[in-house]
């Protein structure tokens, strides 16, 4: 078993009185695509910024590649690539220049920087825009370039804060494809996202955070089956149905005019529901990460 890439224990981040990260513990292993999920304000970005060594931790232990973030920030930063939520490309420079200038910050010499820049331009489909100024790129291209730039130092760990937010499905799928490819080459990928479906499909492991705490940690399929059961039965919220469920002591949740029942085997329940209540609408689907997410973090708006 190779040494973990990130070890966090009781990690803490305070901004004045606000506790943004409240004693988080997790481990990210080499070669994983690891996801941070959680509503806005859950502490995802703060956690990633501490891992990236740009924001000092307020307490707890945090090691990246076995190095302490406080004592070895330069060494750690040389080994990682960071894609922040905000676009921080250099608007005064072209696509190619953005890459080579960035390479210099890692002490990569000019010829090697140019070689890698050309390689990444191809890898992210930016060949035609090589000499275009940043302001003329679409949102998707800017994001691709930001990710390309984060790879210029051939990082062993890539940290991405919501890499697919605000992009169209084509751009999102290309980014995921590239991230999986990176993983295939042995890099570790750490990312946050609001797209639960994507996280479920692409993350090897993930944590769900809320209010600065890690609520669950594990493989997406395991999380779903252990928290939800395999299926969700969705039916209408009528007095008949509620009476039946309460009588049978079956747990349910109400959303608007619908009732959700999560259960391992849906079939017997469906039969009895139809016999007893004959609801006008009945729907069975697989439980998803989104169900877990909403159950754990609540349905109320977060900001």
């Amino acid at each position: 078993m190779p040494a973990p890439v990130i070890v966090a224990e009781g990690l803490l981040k305070r901004f004045g009185d606000l506790v943004a990260v409240d004693g988080c513990s997790f481990v990210v292993n080499e070669g994983e695509v690891f996801g941070f999920l959680g509503p806005n304000g859950a502490g995802k970005t703060s956690t990633m910024r501490m891992i990236s060594c740009v924001s000092p931790k307020s307490g707890g232990r945090l090691e990246v590649f076995g190095l302490d973030v406080e004592r070895h920030p330069r060494e750690i930063k040389a080994l990682i690539g960071v894609v922040s939520q905000e676009n921080n490309l250099d608007p005064d420079l072209s696509v190619f220049e953005n890459l080579v200038v960035f390479a210099r910050f890692f002490e990569i010499d000019r010829t090697e920087a140019a070689r890698r820049a050309e390689e990444l331009i191809d890898f992210f489909g930016l060949r035609e825009k090589r000499d275009t100024a940043i302001e003329f790129l679409s949102g998707g291209m800017k994001r691709r370039l930001t990710i390309a730039r984060a790879l210029i130092n051939r990082p062993r760990l890539v940290i991405l804060d919501e890499p697919t937010t605000g992009l169209d499905p084509q751009a999102r799928s290309l980014i995921w494809e590239r991230l999986r490819e990176l993983r295939g080459r042995g890099s570790t990928v750490l990312l946050s996202t609001h797209y639960l479906e994507e996280a479920e499909r692409f993350c090897d492991r993930l944590v769900i955070m809320d209010r600065g705490k890690v609520l669950v940690d594990g493989r997406p399929d395991e999380i779903v089956s252990s928290y939800m059961g395999r299926s969700v039965v969705e039916t209408v919220d009528t007095p008949d149905v509620i009476a039946f469920l309460e009588r049978e002591e079956i747990g349910f949740e109400r959303f608007g005019d619908l009732v959700h029942i999560t259960i391992d085997s849906a079939e017997p329940l469906v039969h009895r529901l139809v016999e007893d209540c004959n609801p006008e609408r009945l729907f069975v689907r697989s439980a998803t990460l989104e169900d877990v997410f909403l159950r754990l973090t609540g349905r109320g708006l977060k900001d």
């Binding site: 920030p73 922040s84 905000e86 921080n88 250099d90 130092n153």
Partner: peptide, 14 residues
């Protein structure tokens, strides 16, 4: 506006 410093400090530059 350009967040240039944020991009810089994510590299080994302090």
């Amino acid at each position: 506006y350009q967040k240039t410093f944020d991009a810089l400090i994510a590299t080994p530059v302090t």
